[in-house]
């Protein structure tokens, strides 16, 4: 099960003169929960968009399931939850689910079953017939997640999945992630919430379009003598005190 699911190879992305991603290389294995951690504007969403084929690297390549992106076949194997809730407010939750299920070719009894399962996963079953426009922010987030899970993708790409969701539900959503991991699903999660980062198998810290650190949460904390991911991030990001900076002078030099 140590198959490479995602390979990001020397990827850079510029919008005009503004360079958003700077030479990023990453690999993710099957059954892994990989966290992309960084402040807003760091380039997390740009990486995610490239992974789902909505954007192309200016330089470098991206491979999913060891095939080069963009490729429509690979898109079918991927579940994506965008940062903004891409839902149709004038439709009910069920109608939204049916629409997206149809896009992924789910039909009949299978569709019904999957809709039931994913709505249970995000604890929205009792609200399935309500109009999405009457949903709260957290409910919309959960419905977006449910839609991403519908077609049982092998790779789940979730852009800030738990924003606006209360701690109890967040815990149950993470439990769902662990269950998916058990059946071999690879999950990529972006977040700027540090305690959520601790729950990932491995973390990539992004700042100003650069990958500034990579490793398990334990490794990152140990290497920097930190007690929390937040501290570790500060060290790697060069925003901490001057002494700790020397350990990563190369990448931090540009930030001052």
């Amino acid at each position: 099960m140590e198959e490479k699911i995602v390979t990001i190879h020397n990827v850079s992305r510029s919008f005009g003169k503004h360079q958003v991603l700077k030479n990023i290389s990453l690999e993710m294995k099957s059954g892994e929960i990989f966290g992309l951690l960084g402040p807003s504007g760091a380039g997390k969403t740009t990486i995610v968009k490239q992974l789902v084929g909505l954007d192309l690297p200016s330089e470098g390549e991206i491979y999913l399931f060891q095939e080069k992106m963009p490729n429509l076949k690979l898109i079918e194997k991927t579940g994506y939850m965008a940062q903004s809730d891409a839902l149709y407010g004038e439709l009910s939750a069920k109608e939204n689910l049916e629409f997206f299920a149809a896009l992924y070719g789910l039909k009949g009894a299978k569709r019904k079953k999957r809709i039931k399962v994913v709505m249970e996963t995000v604890s929205l079953s009792e609200h399935i017939n309500k109009l999405v426009s009457t949903y709260s922010g957290g409910m919309k987030r959960r419905l977006s997640l449910a839609i991403a899970l519908l077609h049982q993708p092998q790779l789940l790409i979730l852009d800030e999945p738990t924003v606006g969701i209360d701690p109890v539900l967040r815990k149950s959503i993470w439990n769902a992630f662990y269950e998916l991991k058990e059946i071999g699903t690879t999950i990529i999660v972006t977040t700027h919430v540090m305690d959520e980062a601790e729950k990932c198998d491995r973390l990539g810290m992004i700042r100003d379009g650069r990958l500034i650190a990579l490793g398990t949460p334990e490794e990152l904390k140990n290497k920097t003598n930190s007690t929390s991911i937040e501290e570790a991030f500060l060290v790697y990001g060069g925003a901490g005190n001057e002494n700790k900076r020397s350990s990563h002078s190369n990448s931090s030099a540009n930030y001052s």
């Binding site: 084929g53 909505l54 429509l72 965008a82 809730d85 891409a86 149709y88 992924y104």
Partner: peptide
């Protein structure tokens, strides 16, 4: 503007 177009384009829809 609501992002649903992007969502559609991240699905297998041509």
């Amino acid at each position: 503007t609501t992002g649903t177009l992007e969502r559609l384009l991240s699905s297998p829809l041509r």
